[in-house]
């Protein structure tokens, strides 16, 4: 089956993986950085065939429907459902979500 697989020209490095993982809030053990970089490069190398397409003057497509955003009237029609909002919270207290301390 048709399959083009090559190392991407500007492949990701272990350092890139570390950065991407940090941005994504994913933990990657140090010894996994290289293998993951290799894994991602396998996919990115295949994706790079997009460079062959002539996209000169082509508008990017951001939605599958060619419409303008519908606008809604400014009415208070929602909210007032604190119990629903907190129902699945791992921890809540006195109407608040309780989370690990976000400042030092």
């Amino acid at each position: 089956m048709a399959q083009e697989k090559s190392k991407p020209k500007n492949g990701v490095t272990a350092k890139d993986v570390k950065k991407i993982a940090k941005l994504s809030r994913l933990h990657v053990e140090a010894d996994r950085l290289e293998p993951i970089a290799e894994d991602l490069n396998g996919i990115l190398g295949w994706i790079e065939q997009l460079a062959e397409v002539d996209v000169e003057g082509v508008e990017p497509m951001t939605s599958a429907v060619d419409m303008a955003a519908p606008l809604r009237a400014d009415n208070v029609s929602d909210g007032g459902k604190r119990d629903d909002v907190l129902k699945n919270a791992p921890k809540s207290d006195d109407g608040f979500f309780v989370v690990p301390r976000s400042v030092e």
């Binding site: 994706i47 997009l50 460079a51 397409v53 996209v55 082509v58 508008e59 990017p60 497509m61 951001t62």
Partner: peptide, 12 residues
Amino acid sequence: AYYLRAQKVRTR
């Protein structure tokens, strides 16, 4: 290089 180009390919 990736996202914008892919969106343009999508238009194609």
